[in-house]
Design a protein around this nucleic acid. Sequence first.
DNA 1: TGCAAATATGAATAGATGTTCATATAATAT
DNA 2: ATATTATATGAACATCTATTCATATTTGCA
Lengths: 112, 112
Amino acid sequence: MYINEHVINKMQDTLKLAGDATRLKILFCLLDELDTSSSDPHHLIEKCVNDIALQIGCSQSLVSHQLKDLKDGDFVKARKEGTKIYYSLKDEHVKQIMQITYEHVLEGEHHD
Amino acid sequence: MYINEHVINKMQDTLKLAGDATRLKILFCLLDELDTSSSDPHHLIEKCVNDIALQIGCSQSLVSHQLKDLKDGDFVKARKEGTKIYYSLKDEHVKQIMQITYEHVLEGEHHD
DNA sequence: TGCAAATATGAATAGATGTTCATATAATAT
DNA sequence: ATATTATATGAACATCTATTCATATTTGCA
C-alpha cells in the first residue's frame, strides 16, 4: 500500500460513505438475499428507488439523495428502464467491506 | 448475515470510526511498515501517543482524543509502561477493512 | 396536449463531528 | 516535595452531514 494524503482522503470518503445507517440499509437491500431459491453466488440484485424506499422505510427523497452519493462513490450503479431506474451494487469491494465490518461487530458483541 | 437495527447501528459506528483522515493516519501509522527488515506478517507495531502525533503531524491532544475513540471501537488496544502508553492495532478486521478500501480507491482512480 | 408515475434536486435546518485550547491526571526522577 | 514527562479530559466552536419539504425533471400513456 502506497499511502499519501490523496489516498487517505479518498479512503476517508469511501468509509464515510459506508458509515451511515440509511446507506447501509440501502446496500443490504441490494445485497444478495438469503432466499434459497437463488444458488448463484454472483446473482445481481436490482431494485428501483421506490422499492428500496419502501423496504427500508425511508422517504423517496432521502433514498434518492443517498443513492446519488453511493453512485458517486462507486458503491452502486444505475440502469434506466422507462421511468424507473434500477440500482445495484457495483463491485465486490462493497460486499467485502460490509462482510468484514459485520464480523467485527459480531465479535465485539461477545465482549460486552 | 443476520441484519437488524442494532447491527446496522454498530456497523455505522465502526465504519464512521474508520472514515476519518486523522484516524486513518493513526491506523496506517500502526500498520506493519513496509521495511524489509521484518518478514513476519504478524509483526506487532506498538507506538506511544507522542510518537504517533509526531509522525502524522497532529497535536498530542487530537491524537489522544482519536485514540480513545479507536479504542472504544475495538480498533486498537493499549499497553501501559511507565508513563507511556503503547497503542497497537487490535485485530485483523481493521487491516482488512483498510486493505479493501485501499483497493477500492485505487480502482476508482483508473476511471477518472 | 395533458396527466400520472418515478426520480432528482435545492434550500433549510437540526444535530453530529473534528479540532483547538487550557487544564487535569498519573508516573518517574531529582 | 517539586519538577518533568506523557497522556487524558472537558468545554467551546466552526464545520459538516442527514433529513425533510417543496418543487423540478423525465418518461410513458390516454
